[in-house]
Nucleic acid binder design. Structure first.
Length: 296
DNA sequence: AAGATTCTCAACCGCGGCACA
DNA sequence: GTGTGCCGCGGTTGAGAATCT
């Protein structure tokens, strides 16, 4: 089969998104949803291909995106899930509300991969008690995140206000947390163990999205633009976000089941940290494990 | 202080799967 | 059953900031 090109190469913009483009995309999806990504750019008046729009939305502009550094708990989750699932980033992302597969993939490649390798070596040397080493020897300063908020050729690539909030959240640098904890899963609490993290996230969402929503809050499409979730304790329940994300179109039944199980496990710290559980879930008696999950 | 190196992350690319005609 | 179009996923890249020497 001859695949049609993703987009006409002529006349379509590539590269970093400007704040104006972000605004156009957000406003359009807010008003109309994203029924057809391919047609969306034309309808919205964007000189981008649909793929690029979808990526920008799902990886950056979605209101339920949690920005900032990964908590120790999240890193632990990624490590364990990757150990079991491999590079199935979307499935892993389903376990981490507000995190995108792209973000998780980046985190993995930048430092978790090294940590996993180091842990493997440590375990081989029967010396694994320093599990949570700082992810890199060179620590980034708190201003690092502001980089992404910088202006590229006069184009702002981060949603307004996000940059400041990102800096504010820098205290939860995953590396910093890692370096401050003893590593015996001291952070293995549910995500609510970091209330400030979420509160700042909510503030970010509110500050940015309230501007957009204020344009026409009465016409939001609950499917594509969960405005009702804004500032409403979205992250109180990781499963809620998972269910929401599934609304866009679940993958295979098997994956959906695995992802659902993963999301459900967020409710159970003990199960979640159990490698045996994950092994059983993915390779063994799935039905039994699934039946034990908290009700959705 | 300046150049070199390392690191981060947004964005692109290509492929596979799925739905539909 | 086959062809086509769209979506989502995973791999990769490159610009720019942070850090080191």
């Amino acid at each position: 089969m001859v695949r049609a090109p993703c987009c006409e190469k002529m006349g379509l913009k590539k590269g970093p998104w400007s704040g104006e483009e972000d605004q156009i995309l957000v406003n359009y999806i807010h008003l109309h949803g994203h029924g057809n990504w391919r047609a969306l750019p034309k309808l919205a008046g964007l000189l981008r291909c649909g793929k690029s729009c979808r990526l920008r939305w799902t990886n950056y502009l979605r209101p339920d995106i949690k920005r900032g550094n990964f908590s120790l708990q999240e890193e632990h989750t990624i490590l364990e899930l990757h150990n079991l699932l491999g590079n199935r980033w979307s499935t892993i992302a389903a376990k981490l509300p507000g995190r995108t597969d792209n973000e998780i993939k980046n985190v993995w490649h930048t430092h978790l991969k090294k940590r996993a390798a180091a842990n493997h070596d440590d375990s081989n040397n029967n010396n694994n008690h320093q599990q949570q080493q700082p992810t890199t020897k060179k620590r980034r300063s708190a201003s690092k995140k502001s980089k992404t908020a910088s202006v590229k050729d006069g184009q702002q690539t981060k949603p307004p206000a996000a940059a400041e909030e990102a800096e504010a959240k820098e205290e939860y640098s995953s590396d910093d947390v890692s370096s401050l904890t003893t590593g015996d899963n001291g952070g293995a609490q549910s995500n609510d163990a970091k209330p400030d993290d979420f509160s700042s996230t909510e503030e970010m969402d509110e500050s940015f999205w309230s501007e957009v929503l204020s344009a026409d809050s009465s016409t939001s499409t609950d499917h594509d633009f969960p405005a009702a979730e804004l500032g409403s304790g979205l992250y109180d329940d990781p499963l809620a976000s998972f269910v929401s994300s599934e609304g866009d179109g679940p993958g295979s039944g098997e994956e959906a089941a695995a992802a659902a199980a993963a999301a459900g496990l967020a409710h159970s710290i003990v199960d979640y940290t159990s490698m045996d559980f994950w092994y059983n879930l993915l390779t063994g008696d799935n039905n039994k494990e699934l039946s034990e999950l908290p009700p959705i």
